[in-house]
Design a protein around this nucleic acid. Structure first.
Lengths: 356, 356
DNA sequence: GCATAGTGTGCATACGATTGCACGAACGAA
DNA sequence: TTCGTTCGTGCAATCGTATGCACACTATGC
């Protein structure tokens, strides 16, 4: 320990602190003294929910607080209030731009509500999810937002949350049970497919993503829906489950393009896999979009900036984030679960073109 | 309010809680009761720094704690301890993969030290930086890690930190004053340049990044150093300041490639700008690497997966993150500032080739 | 004029953990 | 035996805020 106390814990340490000269932060009591009132009065003056806070003397007290730079100590407040005004957010990884965008919006939405978002990443590992979830709970978050929901019942951690009655909401993906804020993946898949059909494509492959992700399933369902509507037969061999990574897209595309009857267009579950497909196409000497049309999903910033700008489906991350935060509030208030769905938009660019 | 109390604040509420059935978390006192000891004893049994925690009865107490699922309340602990075991991290944006990678490593390094990392983003806006910095301070973080240091004295917020004696450290970039953990940018720039020179290039352009970023300056300095060492003249017209974005890279490259004497290779301050250069090259009908060699920086995951895999300089983010956390600890302990530098590695791929 | 409601304020307590001090016991050394 | 240590443990104070209750006072309605 660097600096040692002069006379133990209960010494009469005044304004000047022991070492370092870093002066103590002002407390409610300091403000109260300055204002000549009781600390409780100051507390109420600063508490917007309290009617007194709309009075003239409350205004004066706030002035004093501001003046001496008082800000309430969140630890003390949380302790007394038994709530931290904090929500834990679990994402697979922040290096996935989609998750980073979503998280930034969630953090912003939380801040609007006076909440603080705490992130934890799982790297797609259910064990890590449990651990970081536990960590967040130890930090006494009031609620949690998960972007890792699965349809295959592997979401053990969500079960734990439900059991322990921790308020939570899902974002981007749903498990079909809990409250969730998601994009309309079926619509997105439909729009993208319809776009390719309009361009004359009928042999369309799908890099479909993992079957445990509702987003992937929804997009594929939208694809089938659009194909059926247009009366185009689907070759099931061209609809391939995959991961969400570039590697996975490259791998699937390598197989697809090696066929004797390759597709003329590929619909990808996200932009990442689309980039992988681009790499595979290039390796095979195929040009995009002349030899192969390509549509991504999420409209990550890179989509527009790739050498061949990627046609993609824009997802309203901000709306989803705000929805998730609203759902979490509702869960805290004990309201029943609900699913919020937000419509995506197709952003046509250069990577998909008319079949010649 | 959903559920109301039965008899006010001081009622004798026992195990079963008022509403919702969400049972109260166990406290130190609960563990103490079960173990038949004083709460302070339990506290010490759980405190690894305390010698008693290595005794048999401490072990027994920990067993009981585990059994009833006790975890200490961080609010109460922080309040008493006057420290939150939390460090605030300020990054421009998480949607920049570099920052996301760095942050993930910082968060991991913090966790290893029993600290919790809180992120805030600034969007490169100094005003936003002040605001989110303030927000973190209001949350009573013990220290801060900044990745937004500038050399041009615009880092007003850092000044505030220094004034208020808040422990902090810089990561990735330095302002030349505070404690910092950075990559050896000069070396990285040198390696990349040397690689191009070895491939026969002499007309090398540089997308140099913003002059307020020490990383950008260092990389450019390394370039000049390598050129000088090899006895190759530098055409200053080819060394262009830029941003860090794809757009910026594209813009600069568009200018460079329109020259009558275009460069045969481009060295980029990061992978983002390199991608922008790719787009510009493509628009001009130039192939990479046949017509233009390209080197990026940071080795973000996408570099290896681009249609033409990007040669890049790998930065040891983990080391930098751990260094930054170590520096922050030292700052907390009142030790003097220090700069830690970590060596990068060149990762050759397909985007740079021998000049024919 | 009196009951009722509302407003402004103070008092005291509780939230849950940490830690300085004190004290008893055990133990080794002289 | 006696003194000095070390170890194990308890007591009590403290961190800073929120809030139930009590009380004084004002305003309103009848």
């Amino acid at each position: 320990m660097a600096g040692h106390r002069v006379k133990g814990d209960s010494n009469g340490m005044t304004a000047r602190s022991a070492d370092g000269g870093r002066k103590k932060r002002p407390t409610l009591a300091d403000v109260a003294r300055r204002a000549g009132v009781n600390p409780s009065t100051v507390s109420r003056a600063l508490d917007g929910r309290h009617p007194f806070s709309r009075s003239a003397s409350a205004e004066r007290i706030r002035g004093i607080a501001q003046e001496i730079g008082y800000t309430p100590d969140p630890s003390a407040a949380s302790l007394r209030r038994q709530s931290t005004r904090t929500v834990g957010v679990i994402v697979p990884r922040l290096t996935d731009t989609v998750m980073a965008m979503l998280y930034e919006e969630i953090a912003a939405a939380c801040q609007e509500q006076g909440l603080l978002a705490l992130v934890a990443t799982t790297g797609d590992d259910p064990a890590a999810e449990r651990d970081s979830g536990r960590l967040l709970l130890e930090r006494r978050v009031d609620a949690m937002i998960l972007t890792t929901a699965r349809l295959d019942g592997q979401g053990e951690f969500i079960g734990t949350l439900a059991e322990q009655q921790v308020p939570y909401a899902l974002a981007m993906r749903t498990d079909g049970r809990g409250p969730a804020a998601v994009g309309d993946d079926r619509l997105g898949g439909h729009l993208a497919t319809r776009h390719l059909i309009d361009l004359g494509h009928t042999r369309i492959a799908v890099v479909a993503g993992p079957s445990h992700a509702s987003s992937a399933l929804g997009r594929t369902a939208g694809f089938r829906e659009a194909m059926a509507e247009a009366g185009v037969d689907v070759d099931d061999d061209l609809v391939r489950p995959s991961g969400f990574s570039m590697e996975s897209g490259e791998e699937i595309a390598t197989q697809l393009l090696a066929r004797t009857d390759p597709p003329t267009a590929v619909l990808c579950v996200n932009d990442n896999t689309a980039i992988g497909v681009m790499a595979a196409a290039r390796r095979r000497g195929l040009r995009i979009p002349e030899d192969l049309s390509l549509v991504g999903y999420n409209d990550t910033p890179i989509a527009a900036r790739l050498p061949v700008a990627l046609t993609s489906v824009r997802v309203p991350f901000r709306d989803i984030a705000q929805g998730a935060v609203a759902l979490v509030q509702q869960a805290i208030d004990g309201k029943p679960p609900q699913t919020l769905t937000y419509a995506p938009t197709l952003i046509p660019r250069s990577s998909a073109t008319r079949l010649t």
